[in-house]
């Protein structure tokens, strides 16, 4: 099955923290941040990497603050193996 990967970008300056998007997200990807934007609203952040790009959050957003992206079969590639132990840091980079 083709794997679908989604992502969103939230314009945190437009967000008013109404939480309609968090409620509409079937993946529970969104949460209210602990910081406020310049207008004093607690804005929304993406906390999980499980977004499917369904657009639900953007559709219910009264501020039009969310842009949604979707891609089928996103390639992942292994770029390095690493370890970090005192006195011995090794990094093996592929290619």
């Amino acid at each position: 099955m083709a794997k679908v990967k989604g992502d969103i970008i939230i314009d945190i300056e437009k967000c008013k923290g109404c939480e309609l998007c968090t409620d509409a997200c079937p993946q529970d990807s969104l949460e209210t941040a602990k910081q406020v934007n310049s207008k004093g609203y607690l804005y929304i952040v993406k906390i999980e990497d499980n977004c499917t790009g369904c657009t639900n959050c953007a559709l219910v957003c009264p501020e039009g603050a969310i842009t949604v992206y979707r891609k089928v079969n996103n390639q992942k590639k292994e770029i390095a193996k690493f370890k970090n132990i005192t006195n011995d840091i090794t990094l093996t980079v592929n290619e």
């Binding site: 989604g6 992502d7 992942k76 292994e78």
Partner: peptide
């Protein structure tokens, strides 16, 4: 050893 996976941003 751990594997580091790079995933390009889809945005």
């Amino acid at each position: 050893f751990e594997t580091m996976i790079e995933e390009e941003s889809i945005c």
